[in-house]
């Protein structure tokens, strides 16, 4: 699997050209740390984050973190939480404009029709839900019928905001802090939007295996399409639509970290019992239309049922993927 990395000019005498590969880092991955068991915020030292970003050659990211409030060198957890809620709210505006939840619903409906068992209320769990936009949109639209909609995230501040927003609109969904794969009872379908590129190295394969182990019937994960235009498009869009410097920074970094179709398929195939399928993979799409693309997974015996439920849209499902040389 490709590790998110970029080439930087090698420094020092005798080192010509580009040799060293350093990780590409998102600030939002670095400024929060939680105790997995209790959910309590753990202290994050600002200078350590700055040093990590500088080591990655990301001076702009380091400057953004240097401007965050801190006390005795430790980032103020409450201020970071507020920043993340603001950034996710801006991110929701991008998702609204690109109609991401609508795209999700177009696939999730047929997916549930294919895998849901008679008599059982299907359960959809959004992994890494943030402020719960996808789940709340599905609940508000009511397009899936009688479905148990849940969102799970490790960040308590984001879960609290998701819960508040759902309560304000009286939406039939719930949000839980914790591990989505350790919930009581299994999900029928796991979904996510914009989560996969955060999972690096072995964590990506483990993510898919965890869904199989949790007894899911299917999954549907949307993430940034790793096209050659993605970083440029991300820069332009985050510049035009977002105000938070952190959001603008991480938006572009996300596009550069996006997994290729091939990497995603390779990782997804490591999950036993779930067949991965790409819908409109990047090499089948006009890159100007491919801001995100979904990866679906179903039990082998449900593949034909899924194709039937999708109807004409099933022609965009593929089980193969081409290795892609990264342009960045």
């Amino acid at each position: 699997m490709t590790t998110a990395a970029r080439r930087v000019p090698a420094r020092g005498p005798g080192l010509a050209g580009y040799r060293t590969r350093v990780p590409i880092l998102e600030i939002s991955d670095l400024i929060i740390r939680h105790d997995v068991a209790t959910g309590a915020s753990l202290p994050v030292r600002r200078d350590e984050v700055i040093a990590a970003l500088r080591a990655a050659g990301d001076r702009r990211g380091a400057r953004i973190v240097a401007g965050l409030p801190h006390r005795d060198g430790v980032l103020e957890a409450a201020a970071v939480d507020r920043l993340l809620v603001r950034t996710h709210t801006e991110l929701q505006r991008l998702n609204e404009e690109l109609r991401i939840a609508e795209q999700l619903a177009e696939l999730l409906g047929p997916l549930l029709a294919a895998v849901a068992r008679g008599g059982e209320r299907p359960r959809v769990v959004d992994v890494g839900c943030g402020i719960g936009y996808a789940v709340r949109w599905l609940a508000a639209a009511g397009v899936l019928g009688d479905v148990d909609l849940s969102g799970v995230d490790f960040n308590p501040a984001l879960v609290a905001e998701a819960t508040r927003l759902a309560d304000v609109e009286g939406l039939a969904c719930r949000f839980v802090r914790g591990d989505a794969f350790a919930l009581p009872g299994s999900a029928t379908v796991y979904i996510s939007v914009g989560v996969l590129h955060h999972l690096r190295g072995d964590a990506l394969g483990a993510f898919f295996r965890a869904q199989a182990d949790a007894g899911a019937q299917a999954y549907c994960h949307f993430d940034i399409a790793a096209t050659r235009l993605a970083p440029v498009g991300a820069w332009m869009f985050h510049r035009a639509r977002m105000r938070e410097p952190l959001g603008r920074h991480d938006g572009v970094v996300s596009a550069r970290r996006a997994h290729t179709d091939h990497d995603l398929m390779t990782a997804a195939r490591s999950a036993p019992g779930l067949v991965p399928l790409l819908h409109r993979p990047t090499h089948h799409s006009n890159p100007f239309c491919a801001s995100v693309r979904p990866l679906l997974g179903v039990r082998p015996q449900e593949v034909s049922a899924l194709r039937a439920a999708l109807g004409p849209a099933a022609r965009h499902l593929v089980t193969d993927s081409r290795p892609m040389r990264r342009p960045w």
């Binding site: 404009e97 109609r99 609508e102 869009f237 035009a240 006009n286 239309c289």
Partner: peptide, 18 residues
């Protein structure tokens, strides 16, 4: 429809705002 609308956003509305 959604896909051409997305095309319009990426090539039209986003750059025009900038």
């Amino acid at each position: 429809p959604r896909r051409p609308a997305t095309f319009l956003i990426l090539l039209g509305l986003g750059p025009l705002t900038l």
